[in-house]
Structures are given as structure tokens and as C-alpha cells.
Design a protein around this nucleic acid. Sequence first.
DNA 1: GTTAGATTATTCGTACACAAACAAGTTTTT
DNA 2: AAAAACTTGTTTGTGTACGAATAATCTAAC
Lengths: 148, 148
Amino acid sequence: MTAKDGYILERQAGHLLRRAHQRHSAIFQENIGDAQLTPLQFAALVKLRDLNEVSQNHLGRLTAMDAATMQGVIKRLASRGLIERRPDPNDRRRLILSLSVEGRDLIEALVSNGSGITAQTLAPLSPAEQKQFLDLLTKLAQLNGNGE
Amino acid sequence: MTAKDGYILERQAGHLLRRAHQRHSAIFQENIGDAQLTPLQFAALVKLRDLNEVSQNHLGRLTAMDAATMQGVIKRLASRGLIERRPDPNDRRRLILSLSVEGRDLIEALVSNGSGITAQTLAPLSPAEQKQFLDLLTKLAQLNGNGE
DNA sequence: GTTAGATTATTCGTACACAAACAAGTTTTT
DNA sequence: AAAAACTTGTTTGTGTACGAATAATCTAAC
């Protein structure tokens, strides 16, 4: 907490965001109910459940993963048999992704755990603070609003 | 944004924290003023400047990095000649870390950029909102307050 | 004072994160 | 239609993240 010129690591947005994200990841891992599933894999399954079918890159945009990251996440989900990949007949560059039966069953069984994880992550705050925090955080998560 | 049962990815704390952290990282990279320096490396240098000398594990605790991560961060900083490592005479397990002259010069020159990066990260919020956000985020970054 | 237990740093293995470069395919321009 | 520009998915390389295992050392208990 020392600082010769007022720059205190513990008060920087980036450091705090990183630590809060660490804490959330730990809560996720303890409570998701599937030891292999990671937050990104869970996000991909949830979005796929909502949309039924999407291309890989499109799913990446919806879940905020770049193409290279998405590739790895999808590969691992497919190797577990949770999702299926087939070529798009209208655009031969594209891979159309969808949930397998096992993937659908798994995500239906685990979504409620996801809600609990968010609740637990926000538990140190009062209900009013939770709402406020999510509102502010939503603004800061917007890709614009930076400074070019 | 669809959802059969109210679980909306875009409103989950973890997803928003991840995206806000992504945005911060992009702002950091554009504004830190040293193309090689990463947020973690910057944090390590800042803490080292504040404390002069610390053991590697201790520095890891102060910057919220586990021992394995810290090891890599320190290795890269040392290979750039920004920090020095010497054994602790009182405890032969320990490595005592300190800034080199170049490391000190670099961090002194870049700390103010760090403040600008936090400001820019929080720029979408009003000053009152910024204070509130940091207060709430600080509570959520505390390692306790989870639910065992 | 030795043994059991804890701590320090390292290594290994898996999973993000993302820039950069690429091949293959699609769209836009001219 | 052919060229230029863009998109999709993959690969490579570097840097977090962190669990688990290990060797060396230190500390606490007995």
C-alpha cells in the first residue's frame, strides 16, 4: 500500500478487476457441478442452447472470445461429445455448431448452478449494491468507451 | 440475449468481469508506453519499487499471482535486466528480488501512464460512479466473502 | 535433536488470451 | 469475369492462470 507518488496498485481498476475475476473463477469451479467445465466452455454451451445453431466465429463474438481462443474451446467441447460441427452448405468456410443431446442435457442441468455462481460472486454486496455494480460494470465492459 | 429460463450470459458477473478486464488490457497495452510490458509485469515492478526488496513468493502474494505464475513473470523481467535476484542469506529457499537501475528508471517513467490507464478504464463512468464502482469492486476482490 | 509438517521456488500439464500469418472461400469493385 | 478486399477457421508463438508434484530448506513438536 506504500507509494511515493500516489500510485497504489490495490486501487487500480485493472488489478481489482483481475482479482475479482480470480475470485469468481474459484467460485465457478467449486459450484458448477462438472469438474472439467470451464467458464468459457459454459458460456459457449449456454449461447449455443439459446441459438441452436451458429457458426464458430459468430459464437466467438457473442461470447467475447477471439477466433483462436474459440477454436480451442470448441475443440475441447467437441472432444467430450457435447457439441457437433458440420459444414455450412451456403458458405464453405463456415462450421455450424450445435449442441449434442448430451450437451443439451448437461447445460440444462447446470444453468441453475450458473445463476447461483453469479449470486455468490455478488454476495458481499447488498441487493441494491449488486444492481448498481452490474449496471456500472456493464458500462465498463462495452468495447467502445475507451480512448483511441 | 435470449434465454428460456432467465439465464442471460450478458448479465452474469463473471462474463462482465471478463469483458471489462479484456477492455482494460487493451487500454493498458495501448498506453503503457512499453510494448513488451504486460499488466502483471508492471504490477510486479510497481510493488518492487514500493518495497525495495521482497522474496519471490511474497511478491506474488502482494500482486495476487500464484507461485507458478510469478516464476514466469520474474523470469521475463530478469531476462530484460529489469530486476535482480539474489539468494536470501537467512533462508536459503528464498530468492530476494529488487529492481535494477534500468528497472527503476523504467518504472519511474511509466507509473504516471498507469494512472492514466485507470482513468481511461473508468472513463465511461461519472466521477461519483467511479468512486462507487471502485468501492464495490474492492469488496468483490477480497478473497474471503465467497461461500464455502 | 530428530521427526513431522510447512514453506520456497521450480517444473509439468491444461486452459485461456490474443497478435500474426495463413489457406480457402466469399463479396465488392471496377 | 478478374482483381482487390474481406471473412472464416487454423496454426504458431508468447504470456498469463493455476492445480499438482517435487527437491531443498526451514520450523515446530516431541
